[in-house]
């Protein structure tokens, strides 16, 4: 089998001459060498001058953008935390202020209440006092009226009883004496 193989491959190569026939597959054919060089040079210039700068530029720009974005995100996070703390503090302060205001309001209301109550009490007391005064003067007037009437009636009755006319001087003396007696009675 291997002999046949060897024959067959020789038959295929046989028609060629020179170096190529001797070296077979390991003959570096110039027809394959120079086109490889040309292709390499073309591709090299394309990649060197155009493609690689663009692609590497993109890779670098992207890496830079990612780095910047990460840094910015970190900054934003720190800033957000700072703001949050600030707001929390402000909220706490506001809450404290609010309770202070409420407390103050309550105090003011209480003071007002006390004042109102005190004033009402005062007014009531004044009213009562005034009423009492009026009653007293009324009573005094009534008493005076009564004394006068009693004196007159007593004089009239006495005059009739004794049947004599008193002189004006006697009359006055009698009244005074009587009034003094009645007043003394009243004082008791």
């Amino acid at each position: 089998m291997f002999v046949e193989m060897a024959y067959a491959s020789e038959a295929a190569e046989g028609a060629k001459g020179g170096l190529e026939a001797t070296l077979g597959a390991v003959y570096p054919n110039p027809a394959a060498i120079w086109p490889t060089w040309v292709a390499f040079i073309i591709l090299f210039f394309l990649l060197w001058k155009f493609a690689f700068p663009a692609i590497i530029g993109m890779l670098d720009k992207r890496a830079e953008a990612i780095k910047e974005s990460l840094e910015k995100a970190e900054e934003t996070k720190v800033e957000a935390e700072r703001l949050l703390n600030e707001y929390k503090q402000q909220m706490a302060e506001a809450r404290g202020d609010a309770s202070k205001v409420i407390e103050q309001g309550r105090k003011v209301a209480e003071t007002m209440k006390e004042e109102i109550v005190a004033k009402a009490n005062e007014e009531a007391a004044a009213l009562v006092a005034k009423a009492r005064e009026i009653m007293e003067s009324e009573r005094k007037a009534a008493v005076a009226e009564l004394q006068k009437s009693v004196a007159e009636i007593s004089v009239a009755v006495a005059g009739k009883l004794i049947g004599e006319k008193l002189t004006a001087a006697d009359h006055a003396t009698l009244i005074d004496k009587y009034v003094a007696e009645v007043g003394g009675l009243n004082d008791n």
Binding site: A25, V26, Y27, P28, N29, P30, A31, A32, I33, W34, T36, W37, A39, F40
Partner: peptide
Amino acid sequence: SIGGTIGGTVALALI
């Protein structure tokens, strides 16, 4: 493939 013939690989190796 260029690498499938020794001519191609010799050319590349020389570069």
